[in-house]
Write a protein that binds this DNA or RNA. Structure first.
Lengths: 225, 225
DNA sequence: TTAGGGAAGATTGGATACATGGAACGGGAT
DNA sequence: ATCCCGTTCCATGTATCCAATCTTCCCTAA
């Protein structure tokens, strides 16, 4: 609709996603206006844009805050993802070629190198969103990208926690492999399904992947305070 | 965020849903401002709200139009609904009691009386949304309600078409029952599953219902011009 | 000490006025 | 006659100013 608001929204979105703004933090219109060199009008429109993306919570006559999720809300996000992302992947797959599968394998490899929380987070996000690149014009893609954004902060906290508590080096009961090792295998399986063009198997692997992540997340309510 | 915009948005939403504004129709900010007795500022915010609901399409430096769907987009909406609505129903069911099931049965009955397109459309919408009333606080509900809104116009056109072309009185090949009769039975089956508290069966019936509707819709590309 | 109420300050919501960008129309050239 | 280009007009985008509302802090009283 306009252009200044777009710039302001893009910048604020980036800052929220990379953790410069934290959930629950208040956003003052004057601040944003001053920092962006514009008046409050485009700032208000930018806030509305981010509100519609679920990143900002607006209260009439009161103000704007960075949206925060409860454990229950985050959990429900994963439930929705379990249903929708398999469909999105199915819609995407016909337009993914061998080169795309190669890029996915590369990202899976990056995650396995253990280069730190931020690197993992970025690669994981890129990996999954890249697997949907064949359907970026779909409504399902809009919904899913939005959900990846609203949960970004909590995935970061969860990844930090997992890295700290030594999940990556094992410590599992029952003789299983280490926590992240399962994740890595699921990613590799997914790449294989995509390379084979087998949408049915891909759907099943993806459901498993998301569901397992949700169950792990639900073990850590402290992330949500 | 504000209150005047809310009023303007509510009014415009109603007008779009009941067909006063048609898909593709241009929306001028001055018009809305004049009709609502406000300035263009709250009008712009209202347009942004409806944009985030998918009812309005915004183009920078150009204007606003009532959103229109292509057959492919509408069809994809149904694909998403096939995946999400069963989940939403599952989330809703634990909080639906016998009274709720009774209301659903009543709405199913209303649809069967054949009281015209508008009455059917209203009852059908109320029926399905009421079955999700146990989970109106969920994200899935937000998504689904949005989809019912964006497709409202095309469901109206489809219903008109079905009523006119005599689908309701039969005319099917292969000795099946008449078109709407199947719909009615699916609704009744759904009520039964809900009354029994059987979420698994309810999911299956709902998938069938939505999928069959999508396939019927895809036979009528003329609705989308 | 704590709970409640009120006043001052700060922040958001809206209106008017101005700037900017597009689109439609008309004129000219090929 | 048609296509291209420029001008004009109109709708949108933004800034400034004013009004309404909430928040916060302090004071009073139980």
């Amino acid at each position: 609709m306009d252009v200044a608001s777009q710039r302001i929204a893009d910048r604020l979105r980036t800052e929220i996603l990379d953790g410069s703004y934290l959930p629950g933090e208040r956003i003052r219109q004057e601040d944003l206006a001053a920092r962006s060199g514009a008046s409050r009008i485009p700032v208000r429109e930018a806030l509305r844009m981010l509100h519609s993306e679920g990143l900002v919570t607006l209260v009439a006559n009161s103000g704007a805050w960075v949206s925060r999720l409860t454990l229950a809300e985050c959990s429900e996000t994963y439930l929705v993802r379990e249903r929708l992302e398999p469909l999105l992947l199915r819609l995407s797959m016909p337009r993914l070629d061998a080169a795309a599968a190669g890029r996915l394998a590369g990202l899976a490899g990056e995650m396995e190198t253990g280069a730190g929380v931020d690197a993992f987070l970025r690669a994981d996000r890129e990996f999954h969103l890249a697997s949907y690149e064949g359907a970026t014009d779909s409504q399902a893609w809009q919904i899913i990208r939005r959900m990846w954004n609203t949960t970004q902060h909590y995935r970061r906290e969860f990844t930090k926690l997992a890295a700290r508590s030594g999940m990556r080096d094992g410590g599992r009961d029952g003789g299983g492999v280490s926590g992240l090792a399962v994740t890595h295998m699921e990613h590799r399986l997914l790449v294989d399904c995509i390379a084979r063009g087998d949408a049915d198997d891909a759907e099943r692997v993806l459901v498993t992947h998301i569901r397992r992540t949700r169950l792990e997340l639900e073990k850590h309510p402290e992330i949500f305070r």
